[in-house]
């Protein structure tokens, strides 16, 4: 397996977005691309990442291989890569180590690292194709701000979506609060849009702590999509660009 990405910053940002939720994960390499599925230790949330082969500058994979990686160790290695460095990832048949090569844009600095891989016995879940009742697209910076603002007031947030608005409500020890967003009428920048597609209104409760973990993916994409259906896990998607891939989070709802 060998793959090369022009910008190391993408992998760095992906890692920042998952390392607080997941400690070890299998990076599954196949001819289609690089993917990862992992749950947090309490098994109520899941990360699903896909980087399509065509999003790489070079991608070669003869046989599917899983690279078991400790994310704290990978973070240490990726700290040695400049944001604009290219990154080449290599692994052989044995799958006991992975090689990382970082090259500066001017090609005058080359660094090489080897990471010991581990055997990870991870449980893969089958995520069904779902027709969600409500889909909300909003700026990822807005999502991050709401989660961080409301997170200081309580542990859970009630998300209510109607045709007119999406409302985030918190009810905590010191009091309560809410943030309500209306779909944008006048749009200056596409990245500032709030869009709501609704089959039926939903009203669900989620743990703010997890929503805040997911907000670490905000640097990956200008917009985030929240998909909700009653009594079903919330899906939060950050797309890397049209052809590149995505990072999705799933979170089980809190049920009375």
């Amino acid at each position: 397996f060998e793959a090369r990405l022009t910008q190391a910053s993408l992998i760095k940002k992906i890692l920042e977005a998952i390392k607080d939720l997941v400690t070890d994960a299998n990076f599954d390499c196949s001819p289609e691309g690089l993917s990862l599925q992992a749950m947090d230790s309490s098994h109520v949330s899941l990360v699903s990442m896909v980087l399509h082969a065509q999003g790489f500058e070079m991608f070669r994979c003869q046989r599917a291989v899983s690279l078991g990686i400790n994310l704290a160790s990978l973070t240490k290695i990726l700290k040695c890569a400049g944001n604009d460095d290219s990154i080449t990832l290599r692994a052989d048949e044995k799958g006991d180590k992975a090689e990382f090569v970082f090259e500066s844009q001017s090609q005058d600095r080359l660094s090489e690292f080897e990471l010991k891989l581990m055997d990870i016995d991870s449980e893969h879940l089958g995520i069904p194709d779902t027709k969600y009742s409500a889909i909300v697209e909003m700026p990822s910076s807005e999502y991050r701000r709401i989660c961080s603002d409301l997170g200081v007031m309580g542990d859970t947030v009630r998300i209510s979506v109607s045709k007119e608005s999406v409302k985030f409500q918190v009810d905590g020890d010191i009091g309560k609060g809410s943030v309500c967003l209306h779909p944008s009428s006048v749009v200056d920048k596409p990245t500032e849009v709030v869009k709501i597609s609704l089959e039926e209104p939903v009203d669900m409760i989620f743990s703010i702590r997890y929503l805040n973990y997911f907000a670490k993916a905000a640097p990956l994409s200008d917009t985030v999509t929240l998909s909700l259906s009653k009594d079903f896990p919330l899906q939060i998607e950050f797309k890397f660009g049209e052809q590149m891939g995505y990072l999705r989070y799933y979170l089980a709802p809190k049920i009375d």
Partner: peptide
Amino acid sequence: CVQQQELKNYFGRK
């Protein structure tokens, strides 16, 4: 009482 179930109760193992 508010409960949060594990994801495998929704998605099932592959």
